Simulated assay, not measured.
Amino acid sequence: MMIDRRILTHFDFLLLFLIFPIIAVSFFLINEANEILSIKQAIYIAAGFFLFWIIFFIPFRNLSKSISIFYWFCIILLVIVDIYGTAKLGAQRWIIIPGTGISLQPSEPVKVAILLMLANLICHNPPPKNGYGWKDFLKISFYIILPFLLILKQPDLGTALVVVIMGFGILFLIGVNYKIWLSILIIVLVASPLIYKSLHDYQRKRIHDFIAEKPSYHIRQSVITIGSGGLFGKSKEKSTQTQLKFLPIATSDFIFAYYVERFGFVGAIILLGFYIGLILHILSFSFINSRDYQLRVMSSGIAILIFVYMAVNIGMTIGLAPVVGVPLPMFSYGGSSFITFIVLFGILENLLAFRFNFEYNSNPFKNINKKGPLAQLVRALGS
């Protein structure tokens, strides 16, 4: 099968170079801690990259109606969770697929749906010079607020906040009138006491534990684990905090603490360097073409998503953020979050590799006054 050279020219191999080391080190740690979990993680990794290549060849730039259908399908799944969902640890977030026993967490694919929907909406209605006004802002915000409320109801405060930060972070970067942001800031500050009272008891407890003088048991063990790693870390046999099970949830929520115990402060700096490099590299795609709103929305959204997950998870392990169960991207054990990120990377690579279609087919004169002298010159040249 012949592949257009332009696809290989535009394909971003550096993105894969930044992702692979993160996944490899994660698998090494999970395998070291629990071989059974490592087998499952290997399956997730294989499934993720299989999906990557399927997603890569889907023509997302031409799927306006399909994207809308996918978004509303994900919304329906969130509604089904509320009615028929399976509860675990007091939260109703999963759907069991009949006859398979496989559980699905709709709050993961809905992140993909939101990004695609925002890219579609903004592409068809780009912001004016001074940014979106209230009418367009509220229209676009609806597609962010609706899944936010449905996820919050499960309850899943961590994922709900990630969705809001991702969605409105994109709008901030794309362009919204500054008066709107000032108004929202004032409203949030005034309503903050009511927002706090509306939280569930366990959510308020997490906030209280975060600001309390004495951190919770999980945080104390995590900080001890990180401190015990020293400058260069310890061998597997000497990593007593993890091996003796003092560190809770070592392969998922607190895997960063486990990593630092094994590889020390130097290892932590290297891992953070890969994440920061990945975030900045992805964010740089939004500056390739100011008119390519699909690429701008997707790249900025993925960059924000990785940053928020990374910042909250690492902040949580060192006591600078409340424990909300947010995974470290592509590093924590689990299939839902991992596959979501791999799918997003597949969409991003598609928009990058096939952007020559956008560049060659876009009309630079579409906004010209049809009766103006420049339009007459273009028509004359064309004839």
Rank of each mutant, 00 (worst) to 15 (best):
V324A: 10
S300R: 00
H281Q: 10
T317K: 10
Y217W: 03
L152K: 06
V323L: 03
I7N: 04
S362K: 14
A42V: 12
C123P: 09
N369Y: 03
A268P: 12
I347L: 06
L344E: 15
H281E: 13
V190N: 07
I288H: 10
L89K: 15
Y84Q: 13
R6L: 09
V266Y: 05
I249R: 12
Y84F: 09
T251Q: 10
V176K: 03
V110F: 01
I19D: 00
V162R: 00
F56I: 02
P126K: 05
F56S: 06
I75P: 00
C123M: 12
F307D: 10
I39H: 14
L157N: 03
S183V: 08
F354H: 15
M117L: 09
K179P: 01
R355Q: 14
S252C: 03
F70E: 14
L194W: 08
G335P: 00
V188E: 10
I224N: 02
I102D: 07
L104P: 06
Y293D: 12
P147C: 07
A250P: 15
D136K: 09
S286P: 02
E237C: 02
A212C: 03
L37N: 10
D136I: 05
G325I: 07
S222Y: 01
S235A: 03
I7Q: 04
K214M: 09
S222L: 10
G267Q: 11
I226W: 12
P109S: 02
H124D: 07
L377A: 09
K153V: 00
I165G: 12
V81L: 11
I102T: 06
S239Q: 10
M330K: 06
L77H: 09
S64I: 11
G273A: 15
D4T: 09
I122T: 06
Y178V: 04
T159M: 05
R204L: 07
A353C: 00
V323F: 09
D156Y: 06
V162T: 05
I55Q: 06
S183Y: 13
F307E: 15
G335E: 08
S299F: 01
I36R: 07
R262T: 05
M2P: 15
F28A: 01
M330F: 10
F285V: 00
Y309A: 07
S286A: 08
A250G: 13
I255Q: 12
D209H: 13
G277K: 07
Q243H: 10
I19K: 11
Q92H: 13
D209W: 08
K214W: 13
K214L: 08
F168H: 01
L77G: 15
K179H: 06
E261R: 03
A257H: 05
I23G: 15
I276P: 02
G267M: 00
T225A: 13
Y360T: 02
W72K: 01
D136M: 02
W53L: 06
L320F: 15
E261L: 04
P126N: 12
K370Q: 11
K40M: 02
L146G: 01
L173H: 08
V312N: 08
M117W: 04
G273V: 11
E213L: 08
S216A: 11
L115S: 06
V79A: 05
K371M: 02
T242V: 15
S222N: 10
L199A: 09
G315Y: 13
